[in-house]
Design a binder for these strands. Structure first.
Lengths: 328, 328
DNA sequence: CTATTGTGTGTAACCCGTTACATAGAATAA
DNA sequence: TTATTCTATGTAACGGGTTACACACAATAG
């Protein structure tokens, strides 16, 4: 690979002049500039980003932490972050953390050593202390990690409330909830939204809430148990779509008709919900927009270290599909 | 951030000695070593990887090109590559190419400028010429890009043949095929496997093959048309699971029972196939293993520039689920 | 007892850019 | 006409590591 010295030699100028041409700063005589550009293209020269990074202390890389890219919520998020990242000439690094704090810390260190410019984090385990000594901008996504971090989230509680109310509206009289893992903040929010609607109903039982850990197989299993114990349940709000589809699978395996016998609503709005028969009604998040916005805010922080903390909250939107009865 | 000089000063040695301790090479007196290690931990020093990369000309980064991480086949692949990558202390860079050669070339250049150590590519557009002047090891995944590249693929043709034969065995008498996009090499292979079985059947019609572009919505659409034109079709081999689920959706929307009226088999073995009712019978690829193996071979190439080209082919395996009639 | 090898450490060049600073001629201002 | 500013370019330090080479002393060999 040609270096800036080779270009300088061929164009008969100093490396400083070549650098000026490359970065369009300082004075360069148009004739000289042309000579340098010719040398650059003749040698097919491309500046070494590593050397640049070393001097600048910045690497033009952005990392995204997700628990597991195999969870279908994350690919769209990752895609959004990558797209924005690329538009701004950053390179995108993906880190699967398994919500394992050890792995997260290892990544945090490795990325710092690589002078990564910023990190977007979806995590249930990282807290203020883990990141206080990190001098790279961090954005919390989907969940809030620390009071002094910018974040992009959604109206989990309100959305959950709306989902549950929707089930009531269409005529469900016993509504259960399959919630996520206890340690995730959005599990708590969505559960609260559900309880906001049902806790004062005379039919409400605490056993109408069971945890499916945001996991398909677990959701199938707990739903089967729930429906066996409580055949009166005619509506289920699943805290995410993966579990919503699990609930549908469970219902169908028990011979229940969806939505005639059981209405199901999910949360997230991932593509999976469109593939089932019947397709899944859901409270959809603008997943791509969330990821894109997080990346934009991160880049703002990178460009302006003094930028104040931002908190942005997207609203979720009901998508009526086939897993719920038609509104009367 | 502390530098090696700070450590050297604190430990009262030269930077060379610190470097020797860090890299465990050369002679270092045990006492000195201890002093250096103390200084390192006192300062919480971590070597700057950018400086290291500049000197070494290697960055400890590996990139994966996929058409689109939102296609559910790729997250598992990406996960595998990332896991292996991490085990060997590499950082994982994900690139969504949309099978757009412009984007691919842009990435190739950007990664070279970053001294990336190796690239794993899934692409239908990149060919020999695009990569001949690239001096970084490249592995072709899922599809073969160039005769001189190591690759990891699956037995597409044999798997397709087996899938089609399976439909025959369970009693299907008119078997159609929803194929992938024309430009993908595995589309061609899977189509050949299908034709190997059916081309000499007296019932076979060329209109039994339609393209669904590996896409859910497209597959739903073309299947509806196919089944309207050819109500005699009682078995469909979809070239991937996403389309297989689309076929199921189409069949159910037409009021057909699966598998009683129509048996459906997919290809890939992604998690999606387990979520539907009925669940999707498929020719499963060992997706994780494929990705992991590609990453391992890449690392072998990185460590040994003289390593000969390797061609590894994984076999696919029938997973009988509920979308096909039971074998008589 | 000298020659050789092993041990332990430091100096400085190198990787490849960027940029502060120096220099100098040309253009403009006073 | 002289002072000042603008234009144009070069030299060299710098970023933070790694390592070739030099040097010195200790241990072992002959």
């Amino acid at each position: 690979m040609a270096t800036i010295k080779d270009v300088a030699k061929l164009a008969q100028v100093s490396v400083a002049t070549v650098s000026r041409v490359l970065n369009s700063n300082g004075y360069v005589n148009p004739t000289t500039k042309e000579r340098v550009n010719k040398a650059i293209s003749d040698l097919n020269y491309r500046p070494n980003d590593v050397a640049r990074s070393l001097f600048k202390g910045r690497s033009k890389m952005i990392a995204l932490f997700v628990p597991d890219i195999m969870n279908p919520y994350f690919p769209e998020l990752a895609r959004a972050v990558e797209d924005v990242t690329n538009q701004h000439d950053y390179t995108f690094v993906l880190c699967n953390t398994d919500d394992d704090i050890e792995k997260e810390i290892t990544y945090l260190n490795a990325l710092q050593q690589k002078s990564v410019d910023g990190i977007i984090i979806v995590s249930s385990t990282i807290n203020k202390e883990h990141i206080q000594h990190i001098n790279v901008p961090i954005i919390a996504l989907d969940r809030i990690l620390s009071s002094d971090l910018s974040s992009v989230t959604v109206t989990n509680r309100e959305g959950a409330k709306e989902a549950t109310e929707y089930l009531k509206e269409i005529g469900c009289e016993r509504i259960a909830h399959i919630c996520g893992p206890e340690n995730a903040s959005n599990t708590v929010q969505r559960l609260r939204g559900y309880l906001d609607v049902v806790k004062d109903e005379d039919w409400f039982l605490s056993s109408y809430v069971v945890s499916g850990g945001y996991n398909f197989d677990k959701a199938v299993e707990v739903t089967i148990n729930l429906l066996k114990d409580h055949p009166e349940v005619d509506g289920i709000f699943a805290a995410n779509d993966v579990m919503g589809v699990g609930v549908m699978k469970a219902a169908q395996s028990l011979g229940l008709r969806v939505p005639e016998d059981l209405s199901i609503i999910g949360f997230d709005g991932i593509a999976l919900g469109k593939t089932t028969s019947p397709s899944l009604t859901t409270m959809a998040q603008p997943i791509y927009d969330i990821g894109a916005r997080a990346a934009e805010i991160l880049i703002e922080h990178i460009n302006d270290k003094e930028l104040l903390r931002k908190r942005e909250e997207f609203t979720v939107k009901l998508i009526e599909r086939e897993s719920t009865k038609v509104r009367r």
